[in-house]
Structure formats: C-alpha cells, structure tokens
Nucleic acid binder design. Structure first.
Length: 633
DNA sequence: GCCGTTTTCGGCCCGACTGTTTTCAGTCG
C-alpha cells in the first residue's frame, strides 16, 4: 500500500465517523494524520518496519501508528471495515454533494434506509425529504440541483490526479527497451482542468510481434491496474483502481507526430484542421498527412514530407519555445513532428492549450498566435499562507522556497477573522503579523543565498491579507488596517449557494472598496465540488476595469476557479490576471503550472499577468491602484 | 485521536450563513 492509499483509507474512515456522530476532535486527528501520511517523504510501508519511526511523524500517535501497521501488513483496516458494515460505502459519495452533510445523511439513512445518490434523488423528487426535521421544499430543491452539478463532475478527474497517473504510466512504458517515444495526449496535454481518461501514445521501430506482446505484458504489471477493458491490434485499454481509464496506443514511428496531433484534439480543432487539409487536396488522419485519393494523377500517395512553407519560415516558432509551461513537458522531437504537419498546412505550430477551434487556426495562419505566458515569465507569487492562519510554515520558510524558485517577490496573505476555523487574523493580530512581515522583508531584501545554491539575491516580501467578502459586500477587516497593507485579496468563503445575482452584487460592492487589489474566486467556481455559478461576469469585469482590480487564477488544482474563457475576456477587456498558487506549504509553489495551463488556455501573454512585473513596477502598480480606487470612491 | 506537560488530563474548531425556526441545527470553509 502506498502512502496515498493509506491516506485515503484514513480520510474515508474520518468521513464515516462523522456520519456516526463520533467525537469531532478524534475525527480531526484522522484527517490530520491522513495529510501527514500523504506528505510524508518516505513510504509508510518501509517506516512501519520500525514502529518507533511512525511515531516521529507529526500527527501520528500510538493509535494511528497501530492502524497504519495493520494496513501495511494485512492490506486491511478493521475500523474502516466496521464502519462500512454499519453504513454504506455510497455514503462517501453523498458527502460530496453540496449541502448534504453527515447529519442529514445519517438522518436519511435512519428514516428511509437510503444511501445512494439515486435513492436520495428519488426521495427528494417524491417530496419525502421535506418530512424530515429541519428540511423543507427549498432544501429539497437545493439538493436536487447539487446532485445535477455533482453528476456533471463525477467520472472526471482533476488535472493533478491525471497528471500523476500519466507520469507513472509513462515511466512504466519507457522501461520497455523497444519504446522509443512515449507521450500523453488528450485533454491532459491540452491542460483542461478536469480529465475524463488518459490517452498515452508509444512508438518504436521494433515494437511489433513478440516484442509488442512482451511490452504489453510488461505494462500490465503496472500496480494500479484493476481491470482490462480491451487488448487489441493497436490499443490497450485499462482501468486504474481510482476509476481512471488509460488507453495506450502504439503507432508506427513515422506516424507519431500525426498521432500525437490527432489524439491531443480537441475534436473541434481536428475537424477544422482536416477541413483545411481537404482544401489543400490533402487528407489528415492519425497516421499522417497524405494526398487525397482523388488527387490529380501523378501525385504519389506517400505521406507528404512537409517542408516549412516559405511564408512562415521566419515567423514559425521554434518548438522548444512552445512546451506547455511545465505541466507536461513535451519532448522537442514530438513537437517538431507535429510542427511539420502544421507547417504543411500553412500554419505555425499551435500550443496544445489553444487547440479548441476558437480562433487559433486563423491566428496561426496569419502569424498572430499569442506568445503565451510561461513559467519563466512569473516573477513571484502573490497569495501565500503561513502559520498565522492555516499555512503550515513560517514567513521565512515560504520566502526561502520562493528564493529557491528564483522569484523576486512574494506576498504573505493569511486569512482574516471570518474564517474562524483557521483562526483568521483580526485587526490586532494583523498588525502583529504586519510587523513580522516587515522584519522579514527588511532582512530578505538585503539578499539571501537560495537553499539549493546559487548566488545571493534579494527577495521582496509584501504584506497582504485574504479578506472575506461578507454577504453584504463588506470586507471583514477595518479600513485603517487594510490601508497599511501592500496587497488585499478579497475572496468569498461562505454561501456560494446564494442566488447568482446576490453573489454578483456582493462581488461588485467589494470591487468598489478602495483597498481591494485582487479578486479571488472571481467566477464563483471552485472546481472540486461545484458547477460554475451564473454570475454576471461581464459586469464584474467592467467594474474591475473601472477600479483597477486584478482577477486571480488560483492554481490550487481543486480551485482553478477562473475559467479559461473568463481569462480570455479579461485579456480583451484589459483587466490583469494574477496567477497565484494559494500556497499553504512551500511545496505548493510547484502547483504554478496548473494556473499557467488555465491562463494559457485563456490566451494570456506575459503582459496580461500582474506577477510578471519586476518588483518595483509591481509595487508602484499596487500603490497606484489604491490611489485610483480611492479617487473613485 | 494527538499533543504537551507545572505528565496522564485538558485543550483542540469557530464565524457566517440559510432554512427552518420562534431560537437554532446543519453546512461550509
């Protein structure tokens, strides 16, 4: 059992304990232990050989250590099984439905013996839920709506989960000597925020006959595989225990570029490309680009070896400029293979994130593709938490991590008091925190050596806060304190189930506040559990333009709450975007590629992004922004 | 459950918000 499996079992047990109405502190211990196990740098199954070493993990005591030892040695967890026999595994799904909590689930189970989404849905439709205490027609409707939203999300996986699985599966494939090329295609490569299944492509000259059979057998030894859907001439289809489907296809080496292009999609992009090929008398499929059957006599049917058209030769992007921001670093050879096809169609190579038939083909034909923002453009992170609220580490630890990444600045933005669960900062504690940030800034701006080596560099540490936007649009921290901060992020932390008009109104009032710099959760869309709310985004956008407020792309994989089409509208409206990781731990800075993927899908260039500015320019911009807003109000 | 300790128990996780109330339970972050 890997750490992630152990953490999952602990979390599921905690969820079931909640339904069983057990002690909340005990439940919290299970969740904390799950976090600790998941982030533990060493495999628990190794540590478990010496039980003392398990106790060294913070959050793991005698009780949890015994549970871990049981899981590692027997592959089972008796406490988990006991709760499951008492309740039902499907209740874990019910917990994912917005508005359905452990108490309600326990009540529905006690009264109706209903434990599946379908059963609860039926009860709601029959008007039977309203008969339960403290439930009414409104609550029933809300649950039905939440079930619809849940259905839309289920069966899809967060980009992060898919990328991890793809990384492991690709590593397995690359162990095979005959595999010369291997890459992930599909929506993962396009950087979509959720992924339905994985498409992996492999190619090798000797990958046929007995060698192919042996290669497939080797891949089937991949530990996560629980089911084989199909094993055919050109494709293998399996399912992992988490439910994710992986399709592996093998292609002739000369078709690898065409295959990558074809299986990366999107469907709309492929259709448009094929149309363009047809007009040029060519046929495009997953094996290559070739002259049409009906082509004029004399033309061979051999695949077109496509030279770069002269008209594009000066503008064509070098493939190495292109790879997608680090999320899935594509090999230069693979990109070059794709580029040959694009060039043969009179197009520049198009970054996978843009392939939606949303104007990218026209732009590629005329040399007007955006120069997409990339990891190297980002100079700092403007949204970070520390132990002052729910972060795990000190200001200095976060600063060191930023320094190691080569950043020029960071902003420390802990939660404000309304987020009581994490002991958010009230005015008094914010002022104390401000002193600490100023002290750290004074020290780091003199220059520090990054932990991993390298020359001494200065780092600016900005003082900020993530304030809560209350239901009436007020910010939950006094104006005189807000005025002392470099950066104020406003986020909504409660009641996303308000009517969209009410949430829009709430955001508009916050945008008008002279101290607000950045709007978090700007589209009311937290990926993990919700469908987008139908906010009046255009009105929000023009208010941001008027008041100089920047919108945030939150790179945490379960956030990404600014949709790519919103990002693109920001660009058109001249409203800046900040791409932040919302880091609660130094490691979270590595999540930047997820935010970048969203930004790139929204066609953003470096100039559209606030945190590509050099430190001094950024500070000036933030100060100016406050003055402009102040003048307005 | 874990943690810390003036060591074996007491503290840890609470405010905003809604829908159902007629004073508050349940959910969320």
């Amino acid at each position: 059992m890997e750490n992630r499996d152990l953490a999952r079992l602990l979390r599921e047990t905690a969820d079931l304990m909640e339904i069983a109405d057990e002690d909340s502190f005990r439940i919290r211990s299970y969740r904390r232990a799950a976090d600790a196990v998941e982030t533990c740098s060493q495999p628990i199954r190794i540590l478990a050989a010496e039980p003392k070493r398990l106790l060294e993990i913070p959050g793991v005591g005698k009780g949890i250590a015994a549970h871990l030892t049981e899981m590692v040695s027997t592959g089972r967890f008796s406490e988990h099984e006991k709760l499951l026999s008492q309740y039902r595994p499907t209740m874990l799904q019910l917990l994912q439905i917005q508005g359905l909590g452990p108490k309600t689930i326990a009540l529905i189970w006690a009264r109706h013996k209903a434990s599946t989404v379908e059963e609860v849905e039926a009860l709601a439709r029959e008007g039977k839920l309203r008969e339960l205490p403290r439930m009414g027609e409104k609550a029933e409707q809300k649950i039905l709506k939440a079930i619809t939203a849940w259905r839309a999300m289920s069966g899809r996986f967060l980009l992060e989960e898919a990328r991890q699985a793809a990384g492991q599966a690709l590593a397995r494939l690359r162990e095979i000597a005959e595999v010369e090329q291997a890459a992930a295609a599909g929506s993962l490569r396009r950087g979509k925020e959720t992924v339905g299944d994985l498409d992996l492509l492999v190619a090798g000259r000797r990958l046929q006959g007995a060698a192919l059979t042996a290669a497939i057998d080797h891949f089937l030894g991949f530990p996560g595989i629980v089911e084989i859907y199909g094993r055919g001439e050109s494709k293998l289809s399996v399912r992992l225990h988490a439910g994710l489907q992986i399709d592996v296809r093998w292609l002739p080496p000369e078709s690898f570029g065409a295959g990558l292009l074809y299986f990366t999609g999107s469907k709309a992009h492929n259709i448009a490309l094929r149309g363009r090929a047809l007009k040029a008398g060519l046929s495009l499929n997953e094996y290559g680009l070739s002259p049409l059957e009906t082509a004029p006599p004399g033309k061979s049917k051999a695949p077109v070896a496509a030279p770069t058209p002269r008209t594009l030769s000066t503008k064509a992007r070098r493939p190495e400029d292109a790879p997608s921001g680090g999320l899935l670093p594509a090999g230069a050879a693979e990109v070059a293979a794709e580029a040959r096809i694009y060039h043969a169609l009179g197009l520049e190579w198009i970054a996978p994130e843009l392939r939606e038939d949303a104007g990218e083909i026209e732009a590629a034909a005329t040399g007007h593709l955006p120069r997409l923002v990339s990891e190297a453009d980002i100079r700092g992170d403007l949204h970070m938490h520390t132990t002052a609220s729910d972060g795990r580490c000190s200001i200095e630890a976060m600063a060191d991590a930023a320094l190691a990444r080569g950043y020029e600045y960071i902003a420390i933005t802990d939660h404000s008091a309304s987020l009581a669960m994490v002991q958010g900062l009230d005015e008094r504690r914010m002022l104390q925190q401000l002193k600490r940030i100023h002290a750290a800034d004074a020290s780091y701006r003199q220059g520090r050596k990054p932990a991993g080596g390298g020359r001494e560099r200065p780092l600016r540490i900005l003082a900020g806060i993530e304030v809560d936007i209350l239901a009436d649009g007020r910010l939950d921290l006094a104006d005189d304190v807000l005025a002392q901060l470099d950066l104020v992020i406003g986020s909504i932390h409660s009641r996303f189930d308000q009517a969209p008009e009410a949430v829009t109104e709430r955001l508009l009032r916050a945008i008008e506040h002279p101290a607000l710099h950045l709007l978090g959760h700007p589209s009311g869309r937290i990926l993990l559990r919700r469908e987008p709310i139908a906010l009046d985004f255009e009105t929000i956008l023009s208010a941001c333009a008027q008041h100089g407020v920047t919108l945030e792309i939150n790179a945490a994989p379960d956030r990404l709450d600014l949709h790519d089409r919103h990002a693109r509208r920001c660009r058109e409206a001249g409203v800046k975007i900040a791409i932040n990781t919302d880091a609660h731990h130094p490691r979270h800075l590595e999540l930047l590629p997820y935010g970048l993927a969203m930004a790139r899908r929204g066609w953003l260039e470096a100039k559209d992004v606030l945190n590509t500015l050099p430190a001094e320019e950024l500070l000036t911009t933030l100060q100016h922004q406050r003055r402009a807003a102040g003048a307005h109000s």
